[in-house]
Design a protein around this nucleic acid. Sequence first.
DNA 1: ACAAAAGTGTTTTGTCTACACCCATGC
DNA 2: GCATGGGTGTAGACAAAACACTTTTGT
Lengths: 258, 258
Amino acid sequence: MARTAHASSAVPETAGSFPVTVDVVALTVRAGALHVLVVDRLLEPFRGQSALPGGFVLPGETLEQAAGRELEEETGLTVPARATGAGPWHLEQLRTYGPLGRDPRGPVLSVAYLLLAPAFGLPAAGGDAAEARWVPVGEEDERLAFDHGQILADGVERARAKIEYSPLAAAFCPPEFTVAELRGVYEAVWGTQVDARNFHRKATGTPGFLEPTGRLGGGGPGRPAELYRLAPGVDPTAAVLHPPLLRPVSPGRAAPSA
Amino acid sequence: MARTAHASSAVPETAGSFPVTVDVVALTVRAGALHVLVVDRLLEPFRGQSALPGGFVLPGETLEQAAGRELEEETGLTVPARATGAGPWHLEQLRTYGPLGRDPRGPVLSVAYLLLAPAFGLPAAGGDAAEARWVPVGEEDERLAFDHGQILADGVERARAKIEYSPLAAAFCPPEFTVAELRGVYEAVWGTQVDARNFHRKATGTPGFLEPTGRLGGGGPGRPAELYRLAPGVDPTAAVLHPPLLRPVSPGRAAPSA
DNA sequence: ACAAAAGTGTTTTGTCTACACCCATGC
DNA sequence: GCATGGGTGTAGACAAAACACTTTTGT
């Protein structure tokens, strides 16, 4: 460990030192449903079980670097460097779990990250590494290793809440997309139906959200839709949609009555 | 470190091991203004500078336990055990910072916590420990040690956003309080004026928020106000105010225009 | 009596929802 | 032409801001 010789400026001996892992809740929308990326573990503990991609932080790297590296090693996914800023991808810290009672090997701290990504095929799925695959959220009942079930639940709830107030739903879309595609993201993440007409008005009418490209997209039946991109100069992490796009009230979200 | 003899089930040797600290953003409302608790550092690094209370996590304790222990050691403050559940106090995890470039002693991870507490005097301020004191948020420009300025900013923003949707503003109040006291909390945390009449109707009309005690409080001039307490059986961490109490729109909060 | 603060009623204004309707394309 | 989905207009329900007004205390 990097400890200086200065007695007055060293980490005290009584301080604990902990192995730290990063685990990534990688979400995407495929075929109208929210999916999460899981891997099959090749090593103990929890060998053979599914888990979120992740692993130990190495000396000299940041947490974000560790998250990107583990994701690439275990799933072949390369996270764009700017995923933490503007652009279709989005990587943000979720929260930290541990260190007690979550790893049979001993006290381990885990810093969880949330990745929102457009749909795409997995490179080299089923290669020599552990198989990585997208599973629909809600069908991962095959128990996840460690406390990854809890981490996944926290990540999904964060994503659901966040797209109400931020332009982050666009992180699930390709760089250019139609309003219908964006609406599909909301419906998939929230698991609800959204009125297409009102959504169109609200999404296009929100300042600082969408910018028309002028081009048309969509080859299916019906009138072709206009293509939009995220408004330029907007940091999806910090920007606030005003007014927000609120998910329909469900009984579970109301405050409990006394 | 707790590593088993099982070669197949041990933390890999290449994994880094990091000292971990907890730092606490303790906020309260005094005299109509939001205050944060800071201590003066007696040891290097940053000796003599102000810092958020906090310190190293010891082996065998949880992060929450470490946060409570450090707070008590450095400020004499005893955090009620149930601060993470119902009750006037509230302690929640904020986020994790590091490990690189934030501590001159080397890579150190810091898990920050947010504590919302009612106003009270500090026991033994200026005793043999480092002096702990409340400073108004915005006047702590005396630069804080480490990255504590950033942590404080994140904590304040979290508090501001959270009281919109949760009953957590009550964490700043004594167990029984008047609607005016509660309104004072909102005004202090948001730094805005709130219409007393509309606030009263909204706060008392929100199901699952306030419960009248029947008693009266307030000895000042004017009609005495009814005393309320948080509605029983409500977990302030999880409960959602519906509809939310929205802070007045300020130009800075709107989405940036293209 | 007066000031001050609590609490209620009412008006105005805006926003959300639901749905009727037109537009543009594939077949 | 007709089905399908994109996009606009509009009326009613609903909630929020603004503020007049009554109530209840201290001085």
